[in-house]
Every structure is written in structure tokens, then in C-alpha cells.
Design a protein around this nucleic acid. Structure first.
Lengths: 402, 402
DNA sequence: ATGACTTAGTTCGAGACGTGATTTAACCTG
DNA sequence: CAGGTTAAATCACGTCTCGAACTAAGTCAT
């Protein structure tokens, strides 16, 4: 039904240029011969299109492969220094800005703490603007654009508006507000989706084309990749994994509903549940300055014997069970080739909970989709959201082929 | 990452031919002028491509539109009599075969009861073969193919194998087995997906491009449409809505897990739950020869006063609540523009339960995705599965443009 | 009835593209 | 340095879409 697509011969060339560029970006360096093999185009066309790309400065020669009796193959690669991009992770506990080259090699980074643990959108805009200015100062190549991952649903109408129901962002016009501070192209998307894109390009999803990436931080979300591309639903709100209902009339979630997964498995929820359990057990609970430390203390407590350890182990076990059930839902409903757990809280919790999580998934998923999937940890660490945000302008470039 | 797509100028023509054919199929009859508007192609190209389609016999002239001072526009439409297709619904309670013209107008139908309420795959194959032979007898045009909707997960490896965990089909090689009886092209897919396709083309999804269709029969499944096309996951198992976990350690589901939605909302589950409730209340329960009658009796009982009515109302109310929660999950996670309830049980239950279902969805869904969606009844009735199956060969024709 | 006007559809020449065949380039071996 | 081998560029050809010119088929005023 979409009215996009090739119409005339020039669109055809654009598509073929994009195809070669993409191949070189993800599998380069390659020779022209390799490109013929990989794309099915004729040698004449590959020569022509490569000449285009060389002229545009997007691709450069990268040495030659040693000859085996004939003319040696000249290798080609994307010139990663031809453009730079900026990726921003607007998290509930901090804002992280990073500058990358076109190949997503990190060039500079900046961490801004969120003041008072509250993500006031009115404070976020000037913070990002200042960070952007600082990062741009060192750039050695034109900036392709700025990608931003946010903790909420993004609606393009046509300028990005963010609905962060759980962090108090009510239809905040982030794109328009940032537009006052910069003329750079802006790409705003849900943070879980950007994380998913980063893991697909460079991490745990490199070798599949359908996967679900769980972002466990203060809350819980997911990025869904289908057929190699982000699945966004009719707005971009697909992937609100944290608000699957796992318990009828269960715990109250900060979204206002009862029984959401996020009310059990996000860092905020785990900490709250531990506080309740500790109180019930008559022990002291924990005293931490922030969520990351609190989570570390709970994990440490679980190693100890006695009532305190018992409470921590029980809270963590239920966390694993709820995550496992949530993953089984995803496996049954979306049939991904892989489920990847990421986010700072996910990366902190999963190493010790993974066996239990897998056990629960096995018990609750249908046999066939279960047999075709696996549950693993993210490969990129906690900066995957910012890195994935930076892939957005690059993806645009690869699609356009210029 | 996909390696499909246009390469040379002939592929370009094929794509444009497909584009025009598709436009005529869904929005015809149209004049060449309308096609220029709709596709953005030049008048010259439209003339050429239309000439192709006329030569191929796929399109015919269909009168003219009255002139407004100039030469009248000649209308074009797809010749629906140029091909016929067969669609088959393999349901848990019956097998339905239908023959259609290319425009999915029904030409003939055949209903085969499932003997003994058990869907033995070894009995299904000869039944389908016999039904096919009977239906083909009356065909007046070449048969484009046979589409089959089945109650289970379909894996193409490369011939369709059906995993119907809840009906006891264990990797049944349906395509190979049917191949022994017919040389017609076979298109096998999950029944919920075919129903979704039918509703998208001709029913409740005509004006959107992202929707979820719930198939409530003996069990419960869903067909997911994203960007106008069926979402199939890495195999075709996406959409196993009935096995979302809605209650930790809840009722035992026939899939073997506990707390699946299907253990609460499928006809089989509703009848079982009513039997338990009636027994607990000391009333007689129901005595019906099949599931459809049983469901009717329960709905009728809910209209009566007294303990019996009370039990029925309570069972139906929980059914509505569970369906509502299951829909809220879908709304949050996939962000569809519409959620449509279909299937014979869904169509029987939903009229009376819809207000309660909507109330529960509202309470459990996030505000934004809730505000962008609606929950409604299917528009095509219970033969949507067979009709949707028949769309599969047609979809192939429209994609190929010849 | 006639001719001016209007709109629909076709034809024509130009420009762009991809392809297979041919030619040129660059290396190796003896 | 000649003969062989493989890579890359070039050429001639066919196909495509497009804009413009042209033909077809109506209406309307006179």
C-alpha cells in the first residue's frame, strides 16, 4: 500500500548505490569483485556505481589484495572520516552525549547527571544544547546529524513529540524546542529502539534479522527488530514491553495501571520490592545515594546468609521469574531469533539471574518458537543507547546512498 | 539487509506494472488519468504499462466516465473472471473450502465437519484432497492457487510444516502431503494471519495499515498486520496471542504452560470454566452437542436470574476482563491503529462483552497508544479465514504484476 | 451542421541505466 | 621480456521513464 519505491531509472541507480554502500559499510573492505558476488549486479554496473561513490568521497580505496597470478583486486571501504555523528541517550538517571565517526568509532563523550533524580524536560533542553555545543567544538568533519534516544513514546507529527508517561513528559515537543538551539538534522526515537539498532549493527544481533532487545534501567522497555529494521508500530510506541500485564490486579505501576511488568522488574521496582521485603523481615534495608548503588547493594546482600540475604534472594528470584515470563510472552508473540537483555540494570542483574530466567522462559514459551530463539546479554554495554541513536543519521545516509 | 529488490530496468517495469495492478485491484475501476494521479507515473508510462496489462488479459476496459467537455475517460478494472482461487479454513471444529473469482467473490463452498472433535492430520489430508477435487470441477477459469489457513505455527523449510501444539500436530508436513494430491500452487499460513489479511483487504482494516486481528475460536490467536503486510516473525509464528501469560501460576493451558490467555478466553476454556462455576454453585451446567451450541447456551444463561445466571455472568465477565487485558498488552506492545475481534467465538461473545472489554483496555493500556486505537468487531463473519487464505495466491499475483 | 475548444490517450525523441562483450590495465611466471 | 591470468574500464545495445508533440473523441456556441 505504500507509495514509496522506484519509479524511474534514476531511482534505480540510487537504490543500487545504496545497496553497494550498505554492503561496504557492514562487510567492507571489499573489492569490486566481492561486490559483484554480493549484490548480483554486473561488473560494468559495479564499476560505474563505485565511481559515483568515489567521486562523492564516501568511499576510498584501501590497498589491494595480493595477486594470485593476475591483476590484484583493489579494496574499497567507506571513508569513516568523511562525516561525524552525535548520539544522545536521555536516560532517567543521566544524559549521555557522544560524538562518533561515520563508522561509529567513538571520538568524544560527555556525561550529564540528572539533577535530583527528576527528568524535567525544561531542564533537559538547555542541557542538551550546551552539551551539543561542547561536542561540536572538536569535530573534524561535517556533522551528519544528531540522534536522540528518549525514555518514552515518540510521535512524529511531523516534528517529534515525546510522550513519557512514566517520567512525566506530556506531549513534549522536543524537536521544536531543540531546533531553537541547532540547525543540525535531528533524529528522535525511543531509547530501547536505538539500543536495539546499535546491537543489531555492532553487537549481539549482528548475525540475525529478527530480535527483541530489552532495555532494563529504572523502568523497562524493548526495541523490536523485524526483517532487519526497527518495528515502530503506527507511531513509534511499539515495544512498550514494560507495560505488559503479568498479574491481574497486581502491583501498582507508575503508569497508573496495575500488574505491569515494569512494576516488578525495573530497577525502581526491584528496589521498592526489596525495601518492602526487608521491612517485613525486620531488617534494615539499604541506604544508597542512587539506583545503581542500591541495585549493587541488593545483589551483594543476596550473597549473604540470614534473613537479609533471604529477602534479597527472594526479591531477585521473583524478578527473574517476571522477566522470564515477559520474555516468554515476547517469544510466543513475536517469534524473534534472539532476545537480548541490555540497559544498565539489565546488565547488572542478568549475569546472576540468567539461568533462572531461561528456565522460566522454557516453561512458559511454546516449544517451537522457544527452540528457535535464545536469551542472552547485550554485547555493547550501557552506552548502546547513545551509539544506537547515532546510527539513525547514518542509516538515513545508507538508505539514500548519498 | 535483504537482497531482494530492483536491479535493472526490467525489474523497474515489473514493479510499476505491479503498482498499477494493485491500484486497480483495490481502488478500481479507474481511468488512466486516475492512475497518473495515484502513482505519480507519467502519462506515457501509464499508457505503456496499461497496454501490457490489457495484453496479458488481467485488466479490461469498463465503460467510460461522462465527458465534461473533452474526450471521455475510459475506465479500467481488473478482470476478476480471468482467474479463480481456492481458500481453505482448517478449523478445530470444521474444515471449510471456498472457491472465489480473482476479486474474491464467492463462487462455491464446501463444509466438512471434523469427526469426533479431533483434528487428526492424517484424516485432514484426504478430506482436503476430496474437497479440492469437488470444488475444481466447477471452475470456469484457470486456478491461481490454493491458500490454506491452519491452527498452528507454519514453518517453511522450504515446504510448509505445521506445528499445532494445541491440536496435536507435531511438525506435520502438510505441503508435501497435499502435493501428492494436487499440482496447484499451495500457500499455507496461520489461520489468524489469513483472517487478518481478509479483513485488511475487504473488512474492518480497509482504511488502516497497522492492525491486530484476534481469532477467537476453540482457542485464541492473532494476526498482526504492520505497514500493510502480515508480520510473521522469523518463522510464521508471530501472533500467538493466546499464549501470552496473564496470570502467574494460573490455569493450566492445553499447551502445557500455566496462566496462558487461551486458558481463559477460548471457547473451550470458557465452557470449562462455566462447568466448574456451575458445579460450585450446585446448578446443572449445560448439555450441548458441540462448542458452538454450548457457547450459545452460556450466553443465554447469563440473561436469566438466579444462581445459574449469576455463574454465567461471572464467567463471561472474567472472559471480558482477560480479553481486555490481552488487548491492552497488544496495544502497548505493538501500537496498532485498530484491534479487531473475529473468529466464530469472538463474533458470538464480543457483542455483549465489548463495552466491558473496552473498559478494561482503557484501564490497562498506556494513554497514548490507547488514544490512537480502537477495539471493534470483525466485518467479514466466520468465513474470513478461508477468504483470507484465498488472498494469498492473489497477493502473489499482485506482487509479481503478472 | 460546423468549427473552436477541451480533455484523454498515444507516439516520438532524448536521456539514463544495466548488461554482455570487448578492451585495457596490472600483476605473475618462466 | 613474452605469455598467461585476473581485475577493471569501456563500448554497443536494448529497455525504461519522461516531457513534448500529436492524435482522438468528446462538448458547446453559433
Amino acid at each position: 500500500m505504500t507509495d514509496e519505491g522506484r519509479r524511474n531509472v534514476r531511482d534505480l541507480r540510487r537504490a543500487n548505490r545504496a545497496r553497494l554502500l550498505r554492503q561496504l559499510y557492514f562487510h567492507g573492505p571489499l573489492s569490486r569483485q566481492d561486490l559483484i558476488q554480493a549484490t548480483g549486479l554486473s561488473s560494468a554496473s559495479v564499476s560505474n556505481v563505485v565511481a559515483d561513490l568515489l567521486d562523492a568521497g564516501l568511499v576510498v580505496e584501501a590497498g589491494a589484495v595480493e595477486s594470485e597470478g593476475g591483476r590484484p583486486r583493489i579494496l574499497l571501504r567507506v571513508d569513516t572520516s568523511s562525516f561525524e555523528v552525535i548520539g544522545i541517550d536521555v536516560g532517567e538517571t543521566r544524559i549521555r552525549l557522544e560524538r562518533f565517526d561515520l563508522g561509529l568509532g567513538e571520538l568524544a563523550a560527555l556525561d550529564l547527571p540528572v539533577i535530583g533524580g527528576s527528568l524535567d524536560p525544561e531542564a533537559v533542553v538547555p542541557a542538551i544544547a550546551a552539551g551539543l555545543a561542547e561536542l561540536r567544538a572538536g569535530a573534524a568533519a561535517p556533522l551528519l546529524g544528531v540522534g536522540i534516544g528518549v525514555p518514552g513514546i515518540v510521535q512524529h507529527q511531523p516534528y517529534a513529540v515525546v510522550h513519557g508517561q512514566t517520567v512525566g513528559w506530556d506531549a513534549f515537543p522536543l524537536e521544536e524546542r531543540l531546533r531553537e538551539h541547532t540547525e543540525l538534522p535531528l533524529f528522535i526515537d525511543n531509547g530501547a529502539t536505538t539500543m536495539a539498532q546499535a546491537e543489531m549493527w555492532f553487537g549481539a544481533g549482528r548475525d540475525v534479522d529478527s530480535a527483541v532487545f530489552l532495555l532494563l534501567g529504572s523502568g523497562a522497555g524493548a526495541g523490536v527488530i523485524a526483517d532487519g529494521a526497527p518495528f515502530r508500530g503506527s507511531t513509534t510506541s511499539a515495544g512498550e514491553w514494560g507495560h505488559l500485564n503479568v498479574q491481574y490486579q497486581g502491583r501498582l505501576c507508575r503508569c497508573g495501571a496495575r500488574g505491569c511488568l515494569e512494576a516488578y522488574v525495573g530497577a525502581e521496582a526491584v528496589i521498592a520490592r526489596y525495601a518492602e521485603a526487608a521491612q517485613a523481615a525486620g531488617s534494615a534495608g539499604i541506604d544508597a545515594s542512587d539506583e545503581e548503588e542500591a541495585l549493587r547493594l541488593i545483589l551483594a546482600a543476596a550473597e549473604r546468609s540470614g534473613r537479609e540475604g533471604e529477602a534479597a534472594r527472594s526479591v531477585l528470584d521473583e524478578t527473574a521469574v517476571r522477566i522470564g515470563v515477559g520474555i516468554a510472552d515476547v517469544v510466543n508473540f513475536l517469534n524473534p531469533q534472539r532476545v537480548i537483555i541490555g540497559g544498565w540494570a539489565g546488565l547488572a542483574l542478568a549475569p546472576s539471574l540468567l539461568p533462572r530466567i531461561r528456565e522460566v522462559v522454557r516453561a512458559h514459551a511454546l516449544r517451537l518458537p522457544y527452540s528457535l530463539t535464545s536469551v542472552d546479554l547485550g554485547a555493547l554495554g550501557a552506552d548502546a543507547v547513545a551509539r544506537g541513536a547515532a546510527t539513525l543519521p547514518v542509516a538515513r545516509l545508507l538508505e539514500a546512498g548519498a
